[in-house]
Design a protein around this nucleic acid. Sequence first.
DNA 1: TTGAAAGCGTTACCAC
DNA 2: GTGGTAACGCTTTCAA
Lengths: 338, 338
Amino acid sequence: MTAGPTPPRMADVARVAGVSKMTVSRVLTGGSVSPATRARVQQAIDELGYVATAAAGMLSSGRSEFVAALVPSLASSNFADTVRGLTDALAPHGLQLLLGDTGYHLDQEEALVKSLLRHQPRGIALTGRHHSAGTRALLERAGIPVVEMWDLPERPIDMAVGFSNAKASLAMVCHLHQRGYRRIGFLCGASELDRRGTDRMRGYASGIKALGLGEPRVIRLGDSPITMSHGGPAMAALLQAWPDTDAVMCVSDMSAFGAIMECHRRGLSVPGDIAVAGFGNFEIAWCCHPTITTISVDAYGIGLRTGEVLLDALDDGEATAARKLSRIDFSVVERESA
Amino acid sequence: MTAGPTPPRMADVARVAGVSKMTVSRVLTGGSVSPATRARVQQAIDELGYVATAAAGMLSSGRSEFVAALVPSLASSNFADTVRGLTDALAPHGLQLLLGDTGYHLDQEEALVKSLLRHQPRGIALTGRHHSAGTRALLERAGIPVVEMWDLPERPIDMAVGFSNAKASLAMVCHLHQRGYRRIGFLCGASELDRRGTDRMRGYASGIKALGLGEPRVIRLGDSPITMSHGGPAMAALLQAWPDTDAVMCVSDMSAFGAIMECHRRGLSVPGDIAVAGFGNFEIAWCCHPTITTISVDAYGIGLRTGEVLLDALDDGEATAARKLSRIDFSVVERESA
DNA sequence: TTGAAAGCGTTACCAC
DNA sequence: GTGGTAACGCTTTCAA
């Protein structure tokens, strides 16, 4: 932290290079400048260690180089991958991500939106289709492209990139049914914070009903989103409530892993005694033993596509109907556990 | 994306409230304003949905509300936790994190530092003690507090919050030695990208030498940082090279988990036939079977402390010698696997 | 407690 | 291809 006297300004560069500020600005933004002067300016920049002040440019030009993104949690590899996709799409265009972590709370999301909008982001990406009225109002006034990720809203704020979590879950029910399982349970968190988790549970329940497999067997345990450590207790609770259960769907691969570990502890073989399915196709699903049957979703791809969709919107100005809703594929990945 | 006509400005709020811009500014920044006028102004703000432009304030006041943070990867729960700690420390003070993902590359780090400095962050946090000469130069010129995290540099740029990865690794060697293991191997990535991983390997090697346990048995496999899926192949390679190995240290819990899965596949019992130790105390270390003996490091705490150290420096202006280096504790957590 | 004027460092716009 | 001038929307500073 060597506090130098005063950092050099554009005017300093201009003076050293013997040109006007405008010429320096053109060099920086890629305007038309003769090669000779461009070289002189560049040399002055290097010499002085000049770094342009983003705030001034932003104020003057009226546009920032920010894109805001809100995720429920950075600790989930799911969303971390999505963020990576977003970065990979946007960074090449000089856009810097402003990241917000909502902790799965809609009011926290609203607070973050309010705070992030102060930086005039060019666009904003949210997670999910559930938002507070205040959030919607803020975004509608903002006049920038908005993308809702990881879901397919019936009434999108603007655009969306995602899939139906309920349908994905339903697909897994069908898979298990096809494999001969009939007494299927579901493990998820106790709170409604994880909206996509709740959607998956609903998809499961509707599948059970549709296939005539009796009443849904749902265990809600632990704060959403539940992870490895919740899987075990949830599995225990399920076996206590419905001892004849022959298959278990879990809201995520993490909880599925925990559930499988609990089975190991009890001497239950998976899938021999009981089948276990996850959701998300995390690394653990194909590294653990037995490997976990799961739903594969391209988390990175969601981020990448979201970035592309935003870039398109920034170009065109207005979203075309065609890209309002961008559907991301999911698929059942059959492995050893179910 | 409803592009309204023109967003309201501070002058608009002032007009509606019947006061000057300055009074509005004071209301926003918590200056002294009579309760009556404050209420009128607040009402005007709500009515118009006014959102202050951060760039203008930044330019005028000369200081931003940004803090920059660079991590090697967001996908690692380690660094995700550190980022959470940083956010938790800084957000209450109105500071917004500007996050950069270096992908473990020092030149990418330099590029990000250059790009992030344009936003005039109040402070910046980096990961590790290794940086390019360009990065050091940029930061020394920047005149802002700098914190290096996850390590204890001999020659810190400014401040540091971390621990000695080599010593932590050494502690694990001692633990294994104490438990009676004598033919100890080490699994890590093939590249030098993961500097902390390399430090851990060095700590291991020095411990092996110091204890007279023969030549180090190091398997370098896969791109750093290695994860679950590399652990298995690395374990296989180790057993091929040194079949009599009785204990294995892994550069992380992720690779330790992969190694254990490989043992299961081969019918080797852990720790009966071979002991396995990890590093990091990730959730998987206490959820899998057997539970993994590991080194516990408070990743969240590193972020939190880094945030506090930065806030201190912003207050005092100059770092006191006492907080130049902030040591974070680590400890051997003995579980079932070793 | 409140207001008026003068910047902050850049880019847009229009001359040359 | 290059330069001057006027914003951009705030906060600082100084007066009232």
